[in-house]
Amino acid sequence: MNVDSIQNGIVIDHIRAGQGMRLYDLLGLSDPELTVAIMKNVTSKKLGRKDIIKIDGITDVDLDVIGFVDPDATVNIIRDGKLIEKKSIEAPERLTNVLRCKNPRCISSTEQELTQIFVLSDRKSKTYRCLYCETKAE
């Protein structure tokens, strides 16, 4: 399957197969103004199978979100059809307003205007916990 290469934009490559749609949702790519291609479960030499997201026209995405979903993904910035930068990704220490706490007893579930913050509590297992109630992120 072929998808046209983009002139200006971002290619998020080497996403663990199955995580592409989650990343699409968390990055807010459902915005109808955006031109986005998602390729899921494509063959990869490195991973066996992978997902890829190509976003046309913008070069600014929240790298923390990508680092949270898959710190092994690669982010390529394309300008005038050329790769101009590879961004390094790592699991962020803090995620702000990306996830909502699912604990109904958490203060952030009741007081909706509070900033939703999740903190990396264990880098090895990539566990994030709600700053307020310490509930594990799903």
């Binding site: 203060i107 952030s108 007081e111 307020y132």
Partner: peptide
């Protein structure tokens, strides 16, 4: 009653 209220 809410968890995290004292932190806030």
């Amino acid at each position: 009653p809410k968890e995290g209220a004292a932190y806030v």
